[in-house]
Design a protein around this nucleic acid. Structure first.
Lengths: 185, 185
DNA sequence: CCTTTATATATGCAATTACATATATAAACT
DNA sequence: AGTTTATATATGTAATTGCATATATAAAGG
């Protein structure tokens, strides 16, 4: 099973949820370490059910479509525990925008910078969203929160650091490319 | 076409190469922004040939298997240029190890730290390799190198900054998890 | 002597992915 | 009046992926 199943089980560990609700969590809770499509969530839930990792509670509704609430089973929890403690092999690196810089020697400064500005433009709102969440929790000492809260905050901190690195690098790169290209002409 | 074809053309822009040689470049030149499998390179080259982006020079050898040297065509170069100047949509984030931290509240400190130490162990040699390459080029002023060298160095710099962030985060996380778990017991 | 490594290209395959689309009702917006 | 959004689940599909394996020769290492 791909990581997706385990990430879903991580969410189900705290509360039973429908596929629809899990999908909504994905736009918020896990978005900086895992993104996925709605269709993948339903497919993953099917496979998890086949394996007995989740049980389905069918809920008939009148105003809205019927729904299936997924409950994590003990066997699912066990599978999650094992996965959480298993060192994973390195992920594939995939940053096509770095390739665009790497090979961009023949482009104009505007073309190159256009690519980097576009990236800044979508990354910065995401960075600000994380900064906001980080500001709310950063001041509690490690000793005054639960282990789970501590770990969630730790990943949030990583997210903030990562986005700041991206922003700093992009801003620096844009300035230096501009200077370099002006110099050469 | 996926980014792979363009990254291959970026390499072919400077010199015609065989699939075998391209594969070797991938373990070095591009490894921190793109990793791939040997089989993907041959498959991508086939597709690129169908599209007329590369031409094949057949070389018969006696001591070694025959080989095909791929030359970038003007139409390939043009496709590369267009891609390089096109802002790409955000890549999917995929960091399962962050998920392991995020959901790791029920694990022991040793289990959690084991995952992080394993990651440090494979990342640190890669970081050191990049640091070494960075040390060799970092002191030339931007004005004394070509645009292409400048951009290659810029991506290398990003790679170094990224690996340092990883190391700093992992070391800090390990220390804080250890402290927190000792505290709770 | 046997195994591994280097040279060189290629296919089979199952898993995973993103994107589009289907179905259905109700509310809210334009 | 017509469109979009929210609720809710599901399938079709082409592309891409990593891994394994096939073929073939020569050199180097154990």
């Amino acid at each position: 099973m791909s990581s997706l199943a385990y990430i879903l089980m991580g969410l189900l560990k705290d509360e039973p949820l429908t596929g629809y609700e899990l999908n909504k969590r994905f736009q918020y809770a896990t978005q900086f370490f895992w993104t996925t499509d709605q269709s993948q969530i339903y497919r993953a839930l099917s496979k998890m059910h086949e394996r007995g990792w989740v049980e389905i509670e069918y809920v008939v509704q009148e105003e809205n479509p019927n729904k299936k609430i997924y409950h994590l089973t003990p066997s699912g929890y066990e599978a999650l525990r094992v996965w959480l403690a298993t060192p994973l092999k390195p992920e594939a690196s995939r940053s096509p925008y770095l390739a665009q810089i790497f090979y961009g020697g023949d482009l104009t400064a505007e073309e190159l910078i256009g690519v980097l500005e576009a990236r800044l433009k979508w990354q910065d709102p995401e960075r600000e969203e994380l900064e906001k969440r980080w500001a709310e929790v950063k001041d509690y000492p490690d000793t005054e929160i639960t282990k789970a809260q501590f770990l969630r905050r730790l990943t949030l901190e990583y997210g903030v650091l990562w986005y700041r690195l991206q922003r700093d690098f992009l801003e620096d790169a844009i300035a230096r490319i501009r200077a370099k290209w002006e110099d050469e002409t």
